[in-house]
Amino acid sequence: MSFTSELREPAFASRELFLDAGSRERTRALAREILMMDAADYAAAFKGSSIKRAKLWMLKRNACVVLGNVGTHEDLAVLEAMLVHEHEVVRECASWAMAQLGS
């Protein structure tokens, strides 16, 4: 017996941004994508989504932590750009992530 069924409500469909987010490489790419977003990109990507309750800086903070845990030296440039972010917690998480990656 299966309790799953075909998705019928389009509002609950996965957003393109999150498709295939299960792989380590896609997770890193998604984190970099979030770190590169500006306010307009964020608004467009999450239009009509409850995730907008989280502010962009909060997602950027989380993306820094993700890269600190699964990132590589290829992610250092985007993390370095966060060292001048307006929110201190984003700067701190970027610095931590860079230290984790051995920079």
Results as ranks from 00 to 15, higher is better:
4 T>Q: 15
5 S>Y: 14
7 L>S: 14
7 L>M: 15
10 P>S: 13
11 A>Y: 11
12 F>D: 14
12 F>N: 13
12 F>T: 10
13 A>H: 10
14 S>A: 14
16 E>T: 11
16 E>I: 08
17 L>Q: 06
17 L>H: 04
19 L>Q: 13
19 L>T: 08
21 A>W: 14
21 A>G: 01
21 A>E: 15
22 G>C: 09
23 S>L: 07
24 R>Q: 12
24 R>C: 02
24 R>S: 06
25 E>G: 01
27 T>N: 09
28 R>S: 05
28 R>A: 10
28 R>E: 11
29 A>S: 10
31 A>P: 00
35 L>N: 02
35 L>Y: 01
39 A>K: 05
40 A>L: 06
42 Y>T: 06
44 A>T: 09
45 A>W: 05
50 S>N: 06
51 I>C: 05
54 A>G: 06
56 L>W: 03
57 W>T: 04
59 L>A: 05
61 R>F: 12
65 V>I: 12
67 L>A: 07
67 L>T: 04
68 G>W: 00
68 G>K: 00
71 G>H: 01
71 G>T: 01
73 H>I: 03
73 H>L: 15
74 E>N: 07
75 D>H: 07
75 D>R: 04
78 V>H: 06
78 V>K: 06
79 L>Q: 02
80 E>M: 07
80 E>F: 12
80 E>C: 06
81 A>L: 11
82 M>I: 02
83 L>C: 09
86 E>V: 08
88 E>T: 09
90 V>K: 01
93 C>A: 15
93 C>L: 07
94 A>L: 02
95 S>T: 13
97 A>E: 07
97 A>L: 06
98 M>S: 02
100 Q>L: 04
102 G>W: 10
103 S>A: 15
103 S>L: 11
